[in-house]
């Protein structure tokens, strides 16, 4: 392989890592897949270092050339399992029979370009928040209203979160607005249980999955990623709790 091809390969691999990390794959999986891909494309040695916010990849090629690339990851993407599965399959496939580099890039782009249908996201939000209101002991009415607020939260996530400076701010505003509206509704319709509706909707916003995976990353040795993620999540959980608490304070429990 000549120099230009080596460079193209490095960029392709960084694209791959970025796509995988942004789809919410575990740190270990990203590092593993990248090392395997490097070996498949004939690298003598590959050093991969991935943390939640950055990828560093140094590849030593057989012609003696060594290339290093860094990719800064800014967005903490939402979990997208179809992407993770697709990229994972691509990594396995390429590890046994490597495709040409332009083809690899093309495949990465086609997997990464897809986005979930909005209808499914709305349905998922409503279903999850409604179900958890019942789960925590709410009445069917609580479940129904929780599902309605689930739709509202999904709408916020799709519109407001892009305009927010950061996720902490977004969570605070969203939980404040939802908390206030839920409290007012609770006063207008006394048969509703405000706490059950809030609990159902908290499940959509709380970074519960992220906290547990962060804690797991720390236990299995990806300490830096785990620790930064964990702190990030604690801040988010605090802002979320702050927003709801403020709404409860303003309007009374």
């Amino acid at each position: 392989m000549d120099q230009n091809e080596n460079k193209a390969l490095l960029q392709g691999l960084l694209d791959f890592g970025e796509a995988m990390l942004c789809a919410g794959a575990e740190i270990g999986r990203v590092e593993d897949s990248l090392s395997r891909l490097c070996a498949a494309y004939g690298a003598e040695k590959a050093d991969v270092f991935v943390i939640t916010s950055s990828i560093v990849l140094t590849v030593q090629f057989q012609n003696g050339e060594t290339l290093t690339g860094t990719r800064r990851i800014r967005k903490s993407g939402d979990l997208d399992f179809e992407k993770i599965a697709g990229l994972n399959a691509l990594a396995r496939e390429s590890a046994s029979s490597p495709v040409s580099i332009p083809r690899l890039k093309e495949k990465i782009r086609s997997i990464d370009g897809g986005c979930p249908r909005p209808l499914l996201l709305y349905a998922g939000s409503a279903l999850a928040s409604g179900a958890f209101a019942l789960f925590f002991g709410g009445s069917p009415w609580d479940g129904l209203f929780s599902a309605l607020f689930g739709l509202l939260i999904c709408f916020f996530q799709r519109s407001l979160s892009k305009k927010s400076p950061n996720k902490a701010f977004f969570l605070f505003i969203t939980s404040l607005i939802c908390g206030c509206v839920i409290c007012l509704l609770g006063k207008a319709l006394p048969f509703l249980h405000v706490d059950m509706i809030i609990m159902g909707d908290i499940m959509l916003l709380v970074p519960g999955i992220a906290i547990t995976t962060a804690a797991r990353d720390m236990v299995i040795g990806d300490t830096i990623s785990g620790a930064t993620r964990l702190l990030e999540c604690l801040v988010w959980a605090g802002m979320l709790a702050g927003g709801f608490m403020l709404s409860l304070l303003i309007l009374g429990r």
Binding site: D80, F81, A123, A131, F132
Partner: peptide, 28 residues
């Protein structure tokens, strides 16, 4: 009764999150 409600609700809750996380249809 609460146990049955919780189990049904956990099915629906997990299904809802699977949709949110863009899980492929046959894995839902």
């Amino acid at each position: 009764k609460t146990i049955i409600i919780q189990l049904v609700a956990s099915f629906l809750g997990s299904l809802g999150f699977s949709l949110l996380f863009n899980v492929e249809k046959k894995k839902l």
